[in-house]
Design a protein around this nucleic acid. Structure first.
Length: 866
RNA sequence: GGGCGUUUAGCUCAGUUGGGAGAGCGCUUCCCUUACAAGGAAGAGGUCGGCGGUUCGAGCCCGUCAACGCCCACCA
């Protein structure tokens, strides 16, 4: 083995070996209990970023451990066709040749997208391999592949048959850039400085005017009414009258409606049914006409008279000027308001009346809320359930049609002869109503999230009743960011319950965002994003993985700093060298894959085995609660400060003794092996490489998860460590070389010392220990550890001041301990009310501190003043 | 307008049944000891945001205030 850990060398070959071996497939544990996670499908246009890395690592840490625990694990990968995003990419590409998608025509354009997908769409799958994702590639799916398309069609038809999908004229969010409708959640709102324009609308009966306020003055071109609150006395006379719409000269009624807020603006609101959702509803209630004034580009159309052809912002200015010129502007206020933008292209969306397909969510919501309320699906951390409920309670119907070409085409046909609408599983050739053949399929495709909503079962073969579907639905866990709870998680719950009759997953693990060290959002456009592939290149996948896993507290954002990766790589080096040490004493390949714990370990080994047992147990508890940063933090500290810093050092003397050498070698082997197992889910490459050296039998990725080894701990380890620490402090205080041999006499009134201390004191701190009574002469100084006192000769310690300082520091510590215990114990209520074991513990602490104080004071007295 | 999160060492953050304040990095001192200087040993550093309450006991529970951040809402 090389003397230094080299991530690049270690990581070169393992992924291929794993993949070819079949460990990543559920067939690896054919008889295990099924455990399935489906990967949130990244966009086919996507490249791996830190958000993916975090998300995938949580998956991988869960899945690799479960696999080692014997579950029949499926982690199913796939990609999302990402309708608008992908179409935009390909349009941009053909745009370089001066072409639009309309030049190509629908069929040729879609073919072009497929070509693009085959050529560039796979990059994230390569990157997932670099990261080490243990997915089952044999089951990879794509939302547009044949099976999933069949599932989408089946779902659409069934929902239509149940009257849960309908087509209707509604106000939707229109993106004038992408020329498509968006669902409510595809709109991002942002506070923007704007103005509130107060416009006077004169009454037609000549009785003065009424003032309305608007932030979008141009929409007045489409006004067909004015609304006031029914109880607003200021306007009680006005209701029923008509006003003359300026510029347009349309006579429009004043109506009374409850939704109007009398406090806002003037309490009178212009009603534009075609361009505002509220106004649309007011219009419906009062029979007001809806006049669309915009083209799909959001320029004013022919209904805008003289303003036709102007873009909406130009129109806003022109309308204001014209109103002003005609004396209709009352006044204008500055006002910040929230403006919706397309989540894809960031264009300001326009509320727009159009004919679209909608999913009626009401009947789907109730079971989906019940499932979370009664715990069939559980959010981790649980607080996200509040957001989920709140959102579900206020859901409006989901607009699922998109006016683009890349996606699942809506399976609806319109008959030109009889207006019959046919929604069918098979493409119809004749109209089922009039038997005419003049059929035209709906031009629209479905929202990308429609197919994503089916992902937990469509990927397993639904609507066919496959073996995978029987095994792996419901999925065990879903791991995702909070940002797509609404987009995805809630919809999967609705669809899963509707079509499978069962929740899609038991646990939903919600993680945060990856942030920069200064807590800002990492984004490509801000230029502060760290590319995980660069990190893998420069530091290795394992260091990146360990860094992220350690930093990712459940549900919290993850500040990502290269320092963490540096630290993780240092750990890798430490583990590497620990393995080299072990292999210096244990034959390579001689450690059994499981078990093999020594039956009668020596005291040092018994101690580390007992610690290992406790760590395994706690690690599993934490992992089962998805607290991986805590689990790996625990393991990291155990490995470094207990195994490496203590046990490996202790083993040196134990190995030198022929009697204890065999069980020590055995212990070194199995402890290292179990560390490799425990670390494997987080740092699979390095641990697999070391497994080859240490165990050499099969793949670690397919090995069995460790059980806590059965052992008992020697009682004196803590005192021994304290004594060693005391001696080291003594040396450090006097700047004595660690090699400087010391003779130590140890007085042990309570007989806690064990014989192995002697060899260890020599080995660890170069001390020759002699056990016996306290020396009866001066000329010694004390090192106190619990009940025992070590006496070191003062001879050679020239600096009495330094010695006094050391003792005083120790004394201060003991006095502080005493004070804390004493304060509690001198409180009668404490003795009355605290549990007996707590009281006993405090008494013991107090007694020990008292004894230590006495010894140190005695020593200081002997030293005298300086 | 409603909801949620965060506030602990110089920095980034852990601390989940209330009972000895922790990690990594940074800093100081010593040491190239035969696994590892990408290391070892020792050490400095905190009124756990403020105030009030519950409790024998509060970083942890309750109330309140403050700062920062996020989400939601029919802000015409």
């Amino acid at each position: 083995m090389k003397p230094t850990y080299d991530p690049a060398a270690v990581e070169a070959d393992w992924y291929d070996i794993w993949e070819k071996s079949g460990v990543f497939a559920p067939e690896h544990n054919p008889d295990g209990e099924p455990f399935c996670i489906v990967l949130p499908p990244p966009n086919v246009t996507g490249v791996l970023h830190m958000g993916h890395a975090l998300n995938h690592l949580i998956h991988d840490v869960i899945v690799r451990r479960k696999r080692m625990q014997g579950f029949k694990v499926l982690w199913l990968p796939g990609m999302d066709h990402a309708g608008i995003a992908t179409q935009t990419v390909v349009e941009r590409e053909i745009g370089r040749e001066g072409l639009t998608r309309h030049d190509l025509g629908r069929e040729a354009f879609v073919e072009q997208v497929w070509t693009w997908k085959r050529k560039f769409g796979g990059s994230i799958t390569t990157q997932m391999r670099q990261l080490g994702d243990s997915v089952d590639w044999s089951r990879e799916r794509f939302t547009m592949d044949e099976g999933l398309s069949a599932a989408v069609r089946e779902v659409f038809v069934r929902l239509y048959e149940k009257d849960l999908i309908y087509r209707g004229n509604r106000i939707i969010n229109w993106c004038p850039q992408d020329h498509t409708a968006l669902s409510d959640i595809e709109v991002e709102y942002e506070d923007t400085a704007g103005e509130l324009v107060y416009i006077n609308y004169p009454f037609t009966d000549g009785s003065g005017h009424l003032t309305v306020a608007t932030t979008r003055a141009e929409t007045m071109l489409g006004d067909t009414g004015v609304a006031v609150h029914p109880d607003d006395e200021r306007y009680s006379e006005a209701v029923g009258k008509t006003v003359m719409l300026p510029l347009v000269n349309r006579e429009i009624p004043v109506v009374a409606d409850d939704v109007v807020d009398p406090e806002f603006g003037t309490g009178a609101v212009k009603v534009t049914p075609a361009h505002d959702p509220n106004d649309f509803e007011i219009g419906n209630r009062h029979g007001l006409e809806a006049i669309n004034i915009f083209t799909i580009e959001a320029a004013v159309n022919e209904n805008g008279g003289e303003f036709a052809g102007l873009d909406r912002l130009e129109a806003r200015r022109a309308v204001k000027e014209a109103l002003s010129a005609a004396g209709h502007i009352d006044h204008i206020e500055e006002r910040a308001h929230s403006v919706g933008h397309c989540y894809r292209c960031k264009t300001v969306v326009e509320p727009y009346l159009s004919l679209q397909w909608f999913v009626k969510v009401g009947p789907l919501v109730t079971p989906a809320m019940e499932a979370v309320r009664d715990g069939r699906t559980r959010f981790v951390p649980q607080r996200w359930e509040n957001s989920y409920f709140h959102w579900m309670e206020n859901l409006r119907d989901w607009c699922v049609s998109r006016q683009i070409w890349w996606g699942h085409r809506i399976p609806a046909w319109y008959c030109a002869d009889c207006d019959e609408v046919t929604v069918a599983r098979e493409d119809p050739t004749v109209c089922p109503s009039c038997e005419g053949s003049n059929l035209r399929q709906d031009e629209d495709v479905l929202d990308t999230w429609f197919s994503s909503a089916l992902w937990p079962f469509s990927t397993l073969g639904w609507p066919e009743e496959t073996a995978d579907l029987a095994d792996f639905y419901p999925n065990a866990v879903l791991v995702t960011g909070f940002d797509i709870i609404y987009f995805w998680v809630a919809r999967m719950l609705k669809m899963g319950l509707e079509f499978m009759g069962e929740v899609p997953f038991r646990d939903v693990v919600i993680h945060g965002l990856v942030r920069t060290p200064d807590g800002r959002k990492m984004s490509k456009s801000l230029g502060n994003a760290i590319d995980p592939l660069d990190v893998i290149e420069s530091h290795g996948a394992d260091p990146l993985r360990l860094a992220i896993v350690q930093a990712a507290a459940p549900g919290q954002d993850v500040p990502f700093d290269m320092e963490w990766v540096e630290g993780a790589r240092k750990f890798g080096n430490k583990l590497w060298n620990a393995a080299r040490f072990v292999l210096g004493h244990v034959d390579s390949g001689s450690v059994p894959a499981d078990g093999g714990y020594p039956e009668s370990p020596g005291p040092e080994s018994a101690w580390i085995l007992s610690r290992l047992a406790a760590v395994v147990e706690r690690f599993d508890e934490l992992s089962d609660e998805y607290r991986f940063s805590d689990a790996y933090g625990l393991l990291y500290n155990f490995a470094w400060s207990e195994v490496f810093d203590w046990y490996l050092e202790l083993s040196k003397a134990a190995l030198a003794d022929e009697a204890s050498a065999p069980q020590t070698r055995q212990t070194l082997g199995v402890v290292l092996r179990d560390l490799l197992k425990l670390f494997h889910p987080a740092i699979p490459y390095l641990t697999e490489e070391l497994w080859k050296e240490v165990v050499g039998d099969g793949l670690l990725a397919g090995a069995r998860w460790p059980d806590p080894p059965p052992t008992a701990a020697p009682q004196s380890m803590a005192v021994f460590q304290e004594l060693v620490g005391g001696i080291r402090r003594f040396r450090s205080s006097h700047q004595l070389s660690p090699r400087h041999a010391l003779e130590l006499r140890i007085a042990d009134p309570e007989s806690v010392i064990e014989s192995w201390w002697e060899r260890q004191l020599k080995s660890l701190v170069a001390v020759t220990a002699e056990f016996g009574d306290a020396p009866d002469s001066d000329g010694f100084t004390r090192v106190v550890a619990g009940p025992i006192q070590g006496f070191l000769p003062l001879e050679g310690v020239v600096d009495l001041d330094a010695e006094r300082a050391r003792l005083e520091r120790a004394l201060a510590g003991a006095e502080a301990d005493f004070a804390v215990a004493d304060k509690k114990l001198s409180n009668p209520s404490f003795r009355d009310r605290a549990p007996a074991e707590i009281v006993t513990k405090e008494e013991a602490k107090q007694a020990e501190a008292e004894a230590t104080i006495a010894k140190l004071r005695a020593q200081l007295d002997e030293l005298g003043d300086s």
